[in-house]
């Protein structure tokens, strides 16, 4: 619980035609090798936002090593469901399976629980788009918009003020970025501090997860006028 309150913020917003996730990265610096996330892959740096299945993405806050283990478990669970039922796993079922595992570690002595909170953004034909949150004890709940990690109280109240029930995906992207820029410690947003992902439907009505690459995040920030500004240029202009 302690680790989670210091972890990078993860924020999720449910829209009528999609779900948006964003996360603040804490492990940054000039010397960090980011070449892996720039070339190839499905995007993201592998620190905060993960693809769990073709219809579910997740954002994690807490102990990174524990999170990696849970991500691996959920990927196997999802593929196991596809193997047995020839269909993508329903989102709530995946959340339940992960929470069963988490709960197990709170029940017996000698072992420590997983120090991870998770946001899940997913789609299934039963309940369409969904956003869930689970905590280390194994509790989970569904949300329209929520936040975990550092400063989650501030973000929650901002979301509560600005969220509308019939919000579309584009508005949701804007809302997430604005809220993120207000809650993060640093003054400016940039791809080196931010991970971003959306889940929408493609032309064939199949769920499509998109985890943004660094260059795409910067382009998105410019579009929403939240990008890092060159202060010298501003000074000269003034």
């Amino acid at each position: 619980m302690e680790a989670i309150s210091h972890a990078g913020t993860v924020l999720g917003v449910l829209a009528k035609d999609g779900v948006v996730l964003a996360a603040e990265k804490k492990v940054t610096g000039k010397l960090l090798d980011m070449s892996g996330s720039k070339e190839g892959g499905y995007g993201g740096s592998g620190e905060k936002i993960f693809l769990l299945n073709s219809n579910v993405i997740s954002g994690v806050a807490g102990l990174t090593a524990d999170a990696n283990s849970l991500v691996n478990y959920s990927r196997q669970t999802a593929q196991g469901h596809l193997f047995n039922y020839n269909d993508d796993i329903p989102v709530e079922l995946l959340v339940q399976r992960l929470c069963d595992l988490k709960q197990g570690y709170t029940q017996y002595g000698g072992l420590r629980p997983f120090g991870v909170s998770i946001l899940y953004a997913g789609y299934d034909p039963h309940y369409q788009f969904q956003l869930y949150h689970s905590d280390p004890s194994g509790n989970y709940s569904g949300w329209k918009a929520t936040c975990i990690g550092a400063n989650n109280g501030t973000a929650q109240s901002l979301l509560k003020q600005e969220y509308k029930d019939d919000i579309g995906i584009d508005e949701a992207v804007g809302l997430v970025l604005r809220t993120m820029s207000k809650t993060m410690d640093s003054t400016t947003l940039g791809s080196e501090k931010l991970e971003f992902a959306t889940l929408t439907l493609d032309a064939d009505k199949r769920p499509k997860a998109k985890i943004y690459k660094p260059a795409e995040i910067d382009a998105l920030l410019v579009k929403h006028d939240l990008a890092k500004k060159d202060e010298d240029a501003e000074m000269r202009a003034a």
């Binding site: 190839g40 892959g41 693809l51 691996n72 990927r75 593929q79 596809l82 193997f83």
Partner: peptide, 17 residues
Amino acid sequence: HEQLRYRLNMYTIKEER
């Protein structure tokens, strides 16, 4: 087919390619 799909998907998601 189901067996190969399982193994391929796990490779793809872990290797990110």
